[in-house]
């Protein structure tokens, strides 16, 4: 997947770039609107990660540009401004999703994959890994051909693991992914633990490999190298 990241903060851009590069994506970075426009003229991208506040202009203006140039990339807005207007304006101007800072890189990646799937850029809504087959339209997951009896949250969790294979997923990022940001609650981690436990039980019951490892006190990791 080819991604254009438009973000004026160099440190943050470097983090995102590193994370996506490790996934094997081609990630190019623009720090300004001008530079981004130039790159969009010259190359094609599957996805655009767009910050709203840029030194030489507003990211929303760039959305207009993308639309007028008829560029077919998926667009994910990443902004510190959680102003409702921006969110609505962004989505109405053709963005596919909106993520507010500070975000988890794993969450960013999951959203990116979701846009990718929705736009059917890889032509399918099926996510597969070894014995796992997940249908993101019907929310059905099967292991070795057996359909797992899992809840919506457990499906989301499994998909989150599969998208972020071999990554340490902190409990915070899982909680934020499953329940959103606005709960003033840090004890959701207990529930993360419960959900992971249930998911593992159900996978084992269907005779799937338990790929999910616990990483010290940090969180969990979907270890694809496990046999």
């Amino acid at each position: 997947m080819k991604v254009l990241l438009i973000e004026d903060n160099k440190e943050l851009a470097a983090s995102v770039h590193d994370y996506l590069a490790r996934e094997g994506y081609i990630c190019e970075v623009s720090y300004t609107v001008n530079d981004a426009q130039e790159k969009l003229h010259l190359f094609q991208y599957d996805c655009i990660l767009l910050d709203i506040m840029l030194p030489d202009g507003n990211g929303l203006a760039l959305l207009e540009f993308v639309r007028s140039e008829n560029i077919q990339s998926g667009i994910l807005i990443i902004s510190a401004k959680n102003a409702l207007d921006d969110r609505i304006n962004g989505l109405e101007s053709g963005a596919d999703d909106y993520l507010t800072k500070p975000f988890h890189l794993s969450e960013l990646h999951a959203r990116l994959r979701a846009i990718f799937r929705r736009k059917k850029l890889d032509g399918t809504n099926i996510v597969t890994f070894n014995e796992f087959i997940l249908n993101t339209d019907t929310l059905e997951a099967s292991v070795n051909g057996t359909v797992l009896d899992i809840t919506r949250k457990e499906f989301d969790l499994l998909l989150y693991f599969l998208v972020n294979k071999n990554r340490v997923l902190s409990r915070q990022s899982i909680a934020a992914h499953l329940w959103g940001d606005y709960t003033d609650d840090l004890s959701n981690f207990d529930f993360v633990y419960q959900h992971v436990k249930n998911l593992r039980k159900k996978i084992s019951a269907a005779e799937g490999t338990d790929y999910i490892d616990t990483v010290y006190g940090l969180g969990y990791k979907f270890n694809s190298a496990k046999e």
């Binding site: 983090s15 994370y19 506040m53 510190a80 500070p102 975000f103």
Partner: peptide, 18 residues
């Protein structure tokens, strides 16, 4: 804005660190 960006940096670096 000014607080969220540094927070985003810390959080992302931490994710890379682990």
């Amino acid at each position: 804005h000014e607080l969220q960006t540094p927070l985003a940096i810390i959080r992302s670096k931490m994710e890379l660190l682990v």
